[in-house]
């Protein structure tokens, strides 16, 4: 049996080029059309966010022309000058959507950054040491998972007495670590039973070194997937919070803020809703497609 498996692997080795597991995953990802669409959308999103000042033709916060207190360009339909039209205050919706990508991505990345640090640290410690530490962390995870997210966000805003995008980072970051911690904990618990961990111990590596160098790199795949999907979730959550007035505040051009201000004009002038709404949908869908693709590509059981 074993000899046979070995032989099969030998044959595989010959047919496959010498590649690391990451190369293999990339090859699998490339074959997945939906994931590549997701990767394309995510890349465009990143480019738009980074180069927003170059791409956006107008200032997103203030209308270009105001004469006699009157907003001349208020509520214009799409035109060559304003491809997505202008809003009530005469601001170019296209420029606002472009800058909105910046806020959305920032929210996604920063909150997931917070979640990564908290989730990996707590999850790895709980999984590796087990016992009382594990029980304490698991309890904390349960508590956070049981907390309604909107309520938590309101509580954070209340603590700081006024809402704002920085509090959104904090609220979303604090609420999104538990799923990650749970995954990391489970991964660590199974990986620490692997023989190469015992081998590393027998070679004199310290606990810290084993966690950082041996355990976490081996649980990277599910972490990457969770974080990618988490970015999409955070973008949605920010839009939701801002729509409720609990998140980013006007005149900052967040997609959620744009939805909120546009809702009054939903019948007479729906462009104010369409474009930010579309932006949210495309961005979240793209990132989710990429996340799903990554899950399939990184899961060794899905190899064939």
């Amino acid at each position: 049996m074993k000899a046979q498996v070995e032989e099969e692997q030998e044959i595989k080795q010959i047919s496959e080029e010498a590649h690391s597991p990451w190369h293999e995953a990339w090859k699998r990802l490339k074959k997945n059309k939906l994931a590549m669409i997701g990767l394309g959308i995510t890349t465009v999103l990143l480019i738009v966010a980074i180069f927003a000042p170059i791409i956006a033709p107008y200032n997103p916060r203030y209308a270009p022309v105001i004469e006699d207190g009157k907003v001349e360009l208020s509520l214009q339909g799409p035109s060559w000058a304003h491809p997505f039209g202008t809003d009530k205050l005469g601001r170019d919706i296209f420029s606002r959507v472009v800058y909105g990508a910046r806020i959305s991505l920032m929210v996604g990345l920063i909150t997931q950054g917070i979640a990564l640090v908290l989730g990996i640290t707590l999850g790895a410690i709980a999984g590796y040491y087990g016992g009382l530490i594990d029980e304490a962390v698991s309890y904390l995870i349960q508590v956070f998972l049981a907390f309604p997210f909107i309520l938590f966000a309101i509580a954070i805003m209340a603590v700081f007495s006024e809402p704002g995008v920085d509090k959104v980072f904090l609220a979303l970051g604090l609420i999104s670590w538990p799923p990650l911690a749970r995954i990391v904990r489970g991964q660590v618990m199974s990986i620490k039973e692997e023989e190469y961990i015992e081998a590393a111990q027998s070679l004199g590596a310290s606990d810290f070194r084993i966690i950082v160098k041996h355990v976490i790199p081996n649980s990277l795949a599910p972490i990457i997937v969770t974080v990618t999907l988490g970015v999409a979730g955070a973008i949605l959550a920010e839009a939701g919070l801002s729509f409720l007035g609990l998140g980013t505040q006007p005149p900052r051009p967040s997609w959620g803020v744009m939805l909120k201000t546009g809702q009054e004009y939903i019948r007479s002038y729906p462009y104010m809703i369409w474009f930010p709404g579309l932006a949210i949908m495309i961005a979240v869908m793209g990132i989710n497609l990429l996340g799903d693709g990554l899950r399939d590509a990184l899961d060794p059981k899905m190899k064939d």
Partner: peptide
């Protein structure tokens, strides 16, 4: 003990298939 492990006393294990960390060369 950690100084001794791997340096003065080493160990090899039963399962060569799983005793090496798959993510490193």
């Amino acid at each position: 003990i950690r100084k001794i492990r791997g340096n003065e006393i080493s160990m090899i294990f039963q399962e060569p298939m799983t005793s090496l960390n798959p993510v490193y060369t």
